[in-house]
């Protein structure tokens, strides 16, 4: 499993919605190879029958009384939007218009 090819980096970059230049891809592949080489050591640890730890503190999901609370004012929520209309976020058209 060790060794990470530039094409693996390109695949991960696509999943993460990051566009990398060819040089960036090569540099990242080299860095990730070094880091993953170190991470490989975890495979030698015997974890047979060991449950995973998912969080820093064991808690069950807390519930609150089912009483409505004020949400954030939508006008405030769009203040940081790069493009907005009223209380909606604007994005480029996703569907082509039909003739």
């Amino acid at each position: 499993m060790s060794g990470i090819a530039p094409k693996d980096v390109a695949h991960a970059a696509g999943l993460a919605r990051l566009a990398l230049s060819d040089e960036e891809q090569l540099a990242m592949a080299k860095d990730l190879e070094g880091i993953l080489g170190h991470v490989e050591s975890l495979n030698a640890v015997d974890t047979e029958g060991v449950p995973p730890t998912l969080h820093g503190f064991e808690l069950s999901t807390p519930l609150r009384p089912d009483i409505p609370v004020e949400p954030m004012d939508p006008a405030l929520a769009v203040l940081n939007a790069p493009a907005s209309q009223g209380t909606a976020f604007l994005v480029p058209k996703v569907l082509e218009e039909e003739d």
């Binding site: 980096v9 880091i35 991470v39 060991v50 449950p51 998912l54």
Partner: peptide, 27 residues
């Protein structure tokens, strides 16, 4: 770099070997 590493260790085929194992070692 960290987003890529995180995406890679969570991606299909690597998830249990990296992320699952790390969570067990965390225990």
């Amino acid at each position: 770099r960290r987003i890529l590493l995180g995406t890679y260790v969570l991606s299909a085929g690597y998830y249990d070997a990296y992320y699952g194992q790390a969570q067990r070692v965390r225990t």
